[in-house]
Design a protein around this nucleic acid. Sequence first.
DNA 1: TTTTAAATTTAGACAAATCTAAAAATAGTT
DNA 2: AACTATTTTTAGATTTGTCTAAATTTAAAA
Lengths: 228, 228
Amino acid sequence: MYFCTHVILYCMTLSEENYLKAIYHLSAKSGIAVTTNDLADAMDTKASSATDMIKKLADKDFVNYKKYQGATLTKEGRLIAASIVRKHRLWEVFLVEKLNFNWDEVHEVAEHLEHIKSDKLIEELDAYLDYPTVDPHGDPIPDKYGEIQAGKKVPLSSLKPSEKGLCVGVKNTSKEFLQYLDKIEIALGIELTIIEKEVFDGSVTIAYKEFQKNISAVAAANLYVRKI
Amino acid sequence: MYFCTHVILYCMTLSEENYLKAIYHLSAKSGIAVTTNDLADAMDTKASSATDMIKKLADKDFVNYKKYQGATLTKEGRLIAASIVRKHRLWEVFLVEKLNFNWDEVHEVAEHLEHIKSDKLIEELDAYLDYPTVDPHGDPIPDKYGEIQAGKKVPLSSLKPSEKGLCVGVKNTSKEFLQYLDKIEIALGIELTIIEKEVFDGSVTIAYKEFQKNISAVAAANLYVRKI
DNA sequence: TTTTAAATTTAGACAAATCTAAAAATAGTT
DNA sequence: AACTATTTTTAGATTTGTCTAAATTTAAAA
């Protein structure tokens, strides 16, 4: 099984790709069929537009659809959506690692780059970046078969004193939070060790680099790590 | 004067950008106003569609237009068109130098990449590629003010025996010609020395690398060099 | 279980970019 | 200068993705 370039290349509009991607993200979260309203909200449009597009995607066998029952991805739809997410995240890695972008600057540009259609481009980019498995926010990059290989990420707040974690991403992607992390010099790939957790407010004292700092429960819940 | 990002970012559709670029290329060739038919041919569409788009671009003050008199670029239109050509050619350099693309593979992908709108992206890319002045075909890359700095290129056939040229591009960009050049190992940046020109058929004997070969008048006319 | 509220779909309209076919303007030729 | 032939423009239709408003279905509550 492999990405169906022909389909992607010849048959999908920008709008179709974006809807498919939104369905992919929403169904990953909920695990069940994506509702018309949720899809419309995600796409910042109206329910009637979402219905129209779901029908079109169903006609092309990218989603399963029964009236009033929401949409789920077909195998082919999931593969295409995964390929778009793959491209998005690879471009994000490129922007951060090669072009000096910050965490909080890459998303918008990657939203456009993800729609460039060229198998060679993405394969070469993947190789050029040395086959990364997570993007700059720690989100996993699907492989070319649409499968996610990266290990599970957990919030920093779930670690106990003396446990160590590799910083792999954030839950809250707001500019404010990312800039806060920049300020205290926490970045992707940093090793963190839990020193102590305050019972009364959930704040966590962590050691990393040459620092030892205390961060709030909110911050700890929004920082993803992979246990090491 | 600088690229008007706001205009590019917020006001131009893909189609408008492509038409503007086509007008830029056509008027560079002829120097005079671009006719509706020529524009339609270049865009592989019908004259009526070209008229419609010219009107729209004229409304936005990107072209000067009088009925039946064709179109010329305004200062702002030229700047935007140049920025698109700049992006196209920078991406071509990136694809060849970093992602192992060949001369004859880059154009199609660059056609899409050129429409990605981000000042930071293109500035960083430019720096990352070390400020190239020509693309892999030897065509000049406009600077960020829309100006072309690169030296003039001339066909190899215009050189006389014992003159040397740096291979900077091709006139004929057909896959066949580019593959022919690959085969005889002529590439961008190669130094060529004219050994001899045959009077009867215009063919040229050239020395380069460890080779000494004879190429036809047609080939020599389609290979651009910069005298050195 | 019936009624009400919410979610979803349909119907009809609109803007963008295109087309075909017909009308209008320009240019070339005698 | 008048007449073709070509070029260009206009008018009206089509497709895609969107909208609003109304109709329909499902879900929740009394």
